[in-house]
Simulated assay, not measured.
Amino acid sequence: MKSILSVIGVLLLSVVLFTSCSKDTDPADVDVFAGTFKGKIGYVDDEKNISQDNGSVFVTKVGTRYDFRFSDGIPDLTGVEFEKKDDNTMVSIGSSGTGLITINKDKLVIGFARNGRSWTADCGR
């Protein structure tokens, strides 16, 4: 019985992730989202200054929490909270850093600083 429930759980998770990854899925419309945005990305701290014109950001969302996993050796930006604005655009809120992150089904724009580190992105899907 346990193995049957495990199989059903895996199948349900697969369906949720498959539908969450569609390019037509807007992160504002779902509680679980995963998608890759490609374009110009950057990162600066005391030791690194990384800029990439053809980078990528893998975005995951669970509830209102977003995690951004960058390519090209850029550290991840995690635990960012959002609120929904007009036109299905999500805008970052809270004291997790300063700046602006906007995300919708077509575009990701990041200009965000936290603890002396800053991330930038201008990407599309």
Results as ranks from 00 to 15, higher is better:
D29Y: 01
V30F: 04
D31V: 01
F33K: 13
A34P: 01
A34F: 14
A34E: 11
T36A: 04
F37H: 07
K38A: 10
G39T: 08
K40C: 00
G42S: 14
V44I: 14
D45G: 15
D45M: 15
D45R: 15
E47V: 02
K48V: 00
K48W: 00
K48G: 00
N49K: 09
S51G: 01
Q52N: 15
D53H: 08
N54G: 02
G55K: 13
V57G: 08
F58Y: 13
F58T: 09
V59S: 01
V59C: 02
V59W: 04
V62M: 07
V62I: 13
V62F: 09
G63F: 04
T64R: 08
T64N: 06
R65D: 12
Y66W: 05
Y66E: 01
D67F: 13
F68D: 09
D72L: 05
G73N: 05
G73C: 07
I74A: 09
D76M: 05
G79T: 07
E81M: 13
E81F: 12
K84F: 07
K84N: 15
K84E: 15
K84P: 02
K84C: 10
K85H: 06
D86I: 01
S92P: 02
G97H: 14
T98Q: 06
G99T: 12
L100R: 15
I101S: 10
